[in-house]
Design a protein around this nucleic acid. Sequence first.
DNA 1: GAATTGTCACCAG
DNA 2: CTGGTGACAATTC
Length: 176
Amino acid sequence: MREVIRFAWGNSSLGEFMVAMSDKGLVALELGSGRDLVEEALRIRFPGAEVVSRQLELIDILDKITRVIEEPRFNPELPLDMRGTAYEIEVWSMLRVLPVGETISYGAFAAKLGTRDARDVTKAIASNPIAVLVPCHRVIKKDGSISGYRWGVKRKRELLAREQRAKPLPTSEGDG
DNA sequence: GAATTGTCACCAG
DNA sequence: CTGGTGACAATTC
């Protein structure tokens, strides 16, 4: 029996986004870069699967995702159906334990995983199909600057800015 | 900020 | 194993 991938589009302050689900859970969360392109990419990613639009069925999911984007500390508790190599899944799992508002360098993150190279971690992170819920945006360069993001550097900066605002630290920031 | 170089584990064949 | 590849890191201008 053919696998069915359901998807739907939502809107947030970061722009449009698309969620896609298999029977097991979330398989993709894409931040708007053209509906046709994203939907096409979905079919390429799941050859042989039936990719169908289910806007109304996923309305609850869309609502949760929207809230996560607006409020980084909100936990949607959605099941993730992560597909990739064993190494990629390990990296994505590690990403999800990073605390809100924290950032880590690729090198430091690599060290947490083992003795692997920073360059290697980037490949796995860059292959992450699930934006925001797998907080790949919390990994930045050692320099502190942001060099790349699959869904646009501007969105990455925006997400980080929100998380830092949402950070529970009592410190009063003097930045302006 | 943009360009350059060193480096190495992973992935595909 | 061989070959190709990077959302790096550190340096330079």
